[in-house]
Each structure stands twice: as structure tokens, then as C-alpha cells.
């Protein structure tokens, strides 16, 4: 029984079946990659997990509870954090404030009317935030305007915003898209460390096979909205069906 159990999930957009009968299971403390050619339904699946979309059929159980019908903020409060394909951060705020907001969400819940407390008095949370910034090598940038940072820094910031909440499951949507090779390797190291030291389960959507095979313990291959295979990286490498799915894509 995995921490995330997806069973028979289907989603149609008009006449197009974006997902049909997707079943997969993410084991606790593992890194599970979801790969597949463009248009395979990876992002749709991810959106079904975080409450952005509601699947037409099937069930999504997280930690023994259904996530279906819950709003994104409720799903986050259950322990699922998401990193987006293009970094979603609070651009108008400073880096430190960007980290503080998830801290407040974790401590105070989805809404609290703390209008007469002072932000600068939250020593404990500030310390926690500074600590996580050190972990992602951004301590020197804490007073920077988040929007003015490079794309790589924005990604690391978004990652830190998720990590500071100590999620049970971290969902990553192409965390290395558009990165230089050196940055990609840094990100791989960071994610490995997160998985091993913090024991955070990860589900990752990725195109870059180098990233997938460096990180994943299990891989699900999606093609045209259905899972083709779910197996270990070594077995996936030699799988004929997978090769066909990818070659088929390149012929188009």
C-alpha cells in the first residue's frame, strides 16, 4: 500500500480522453517518476492529484484519505506540496517572505486573522526559514526581491518553499526544464538529498532521462493517457514498448 494510490483515474476534455484508467502507486520514501511523450497526460494527471482538476472516474487516495473534491489549499494541508514547471513564487515579496508564507500556512492553517501580530516578531519562523535558505544555498539572497532573481534561483526558492512545509509528498513538474547541465546536476543532488535525509516521498514528471534514471526508484510510463508499464529503471530501459512509444513520437 503506497502513500499515494491512484486507481482507474479517467479525465475527458470534450471528446478527447486525456487520461483513461490510470492506476499507479507511489511507495513511501521513494522517488517515483512519471514519464511519457508529449501529450501523454502527465500534467493532467498531476493536476488531478492537487485539486486543480477533478477526474471523471476513479479514485485518488493519499495517506488513506481521498483527495477528490478537495480544494488545492486543503490538499496542501494534507501534506502534498507542488513544484511547478515554470516557478510559481511571490515575485513582489522578498525571498525570506516567500519562505515565511508557507511556514505560516503550515503553522496556522488555511486562514488566520493575525492582523495585529508582527511579522518581524516571528523569530522562530524566521530562523526556520533562514535555515532552509542555507540548505538550498540562498542565505545571502534572503532580502532580495524574488522577481529579480535568475530562473534557476526562482526554482530553488520554490523548492525551498515546498520543503519548509515538510511535506509527506512532493510533486515536481519538470524541475530541470530549461536548465544548463551543471544546474541540472545540482538539482539532482539536491533532490537526492531531500529524499534521503528528509525522507520525503517524491513524484516527479520529467523529460530528461538523465534526471529520471539518476533519481527514480520506480518509473511509470504514460502514453496516450494510459500507463504503459510501471517498473524499475533498469527494466524500463530495456522495455520494447517504451522505446516504441518514444520512437513513435519522434516519427510524428
Amino acid at each position: 500500500m503506497g502513500i499515494l494510490e491512484v486507481k482507474g483515474v479517467g479525465k475527458r476534455f470534450g471528446g478527447l480522453a486525456a487520461l483513461s484508467d490510470v492506476t499507479l502507486s507511489v511507495e513511501e520514501n521513494s522517488v517515483h517518476a512519471i514519464i511519457g511523450p508529449n501529450g501523454a497526460g502527465k500534467s493532467t494527471l498531476l493536476n488531478c492529484l492537487v485539486g486543480k482538476l477533478i477526474p471523471d472516474t476513479g479514485s485518488v487516495m493519499f495517506d488513506g484519505q481521498s483527495v477528490l473534491g478537495r480544494k488545492p489549499h486543503e490538499i496542501n494541508q494534507m501534506g502534498i506540496s507542488r513544484v511547478f514547471q515554470t516557478p510559481e513564487i511571490f515575485g513582489d515579496l522578498t525571498v525570506l517572505e516567500n519562505i515565511m508564507i508557507p511556514c505560516f500556512a503550515k503553522r496556522d492553517g488555511a486562514f488566520r486573522m493575525h492582523a495585529f501580530e508582527q511579522f518581524s516578531h516571528e523569530k522562530e519562523l524566521i530562523e526556520k526559514s533562514e535555515h532552509i535558505l542555507e540548505d538550498v544555498n540562498m542565505a545571502d539572497k534572503k532580502d532580495m526581491h524574488a522577481a529579480s532573481m535568475s530562473r534557476g534561483d526562482k526554482r530553488r526558492l520554490e523548492m525551498a518553499m515546498c520543503l519548509v512545509q515538510d511535506p509527506k509528498l512532493l510533486l515536481l513538474d519538470e524541475p530541470t526544464a530549461g536548465m544548463a547541465r551543471a544546474d541540472t546536476n545540482n538539482t539532482i543532488d539536491l533532490l537526492k538529498e531531500i529524499n534521503e535525509k528528509r525522507k520525503i516521498t517524491m513524484a516527479i514528471i520529467e523529460h530528461d532521462m538523465h534526471v529520471v534514471f539518476s533519481l527514480a526508484q520506480r518509473i511509470t510510463v504514460l502514453a496516450q493517457g494510459t500507463p504503459l508499464v510501471e517498473d524499475t529503471p533498469d527494466n524500463i530501459k530495456g522495455n520494447a514498448k517504451v522505446q516504441e512509444a518514444y520512437l513513435g513520437e519522434s516519427q510524428n
Binding site: 489549499h73 510559481e88 503550515k106 512545509q165
Partner: peptide, 10 residues
């Protein structure tokens, strides 16, 4: 969007 995915109800 980020706010909602951070567990806050805007």
C-alpha cells in the same frame, strides 16, 4: 495560484 498551492485559502 501559489498561495492556494501553499495551503492558504485566499
Amino acid at each position: 495560484q501559489r498561495m492556494n498551492y501553499t495551503g492558504l485559502n485566499s
